[in-house]
């Protein structure tokens, strides 16, 4: 029940963001300061979620698995070179498998 409620509320939040400009007009979006702040949110969110997946174990800081770190770095580097997130995902998974294969945790 909690899962469905969370998804429903998340959908409501997402729809509110999508519909905001339809209802409220474009004055705020035209503000340069708002644009600058919003541009910073995406990288901060993504970096925090990556760090959370790698560095937090049961809510506390923990030593990350070497294979996972290498995989994330490989995915990042691949997308910087290719611009393709799907290719980065595949490369990351391959690097992780190789790391496990050579005995890295």
């Amino acid at each position: 029940m909690t899962v469905l409620l969370t998804f429903t509320l998340a959908a409501a939040v997402t729809f509110a963001l999508r519909a905001w400009m339809t209802v409220a007009g474009g004055r705020l979006v035209e503000s340069p300061r708002f644009a600058e702040l919003t541009a910073l949110v995406t990288p901060a969110v993504l970096a925090a979620m990556i760090a959370s997946a790698l560095l937090l174990g049961h809510g506390r800081a923990s030593v990350p698995a070497t294979g996972a770190v290498l995989a994330v770095l490989a995915a990042f580097w691949t997308v910087r070179r290719s611009g393709n997130v799907a290719v980065g995902l595949v490369v990351g998974l391959v690097v992780h498998a190789l790391a496990l294969g050579v005995g890295l945790s």
Binding site: A39, T42, A44, V45, L46, M49, I50, A75, L89
Partner: peptide
């Protein structure tokens, strides 16, 4: 999930402030 997020992050680091925001958050 972290692999897809890493790929998406790689496409959102064009400015110095964006890179700083990512490093500080991490």
């Amino acid at each position: 999930a972290p692999l897809v997020f890493a790929g998406m992050l790689a496409r959102h680091l064009e400015t110095g402030p964006a890179r700083l925001a990512a490093v500080a958050a991490a």
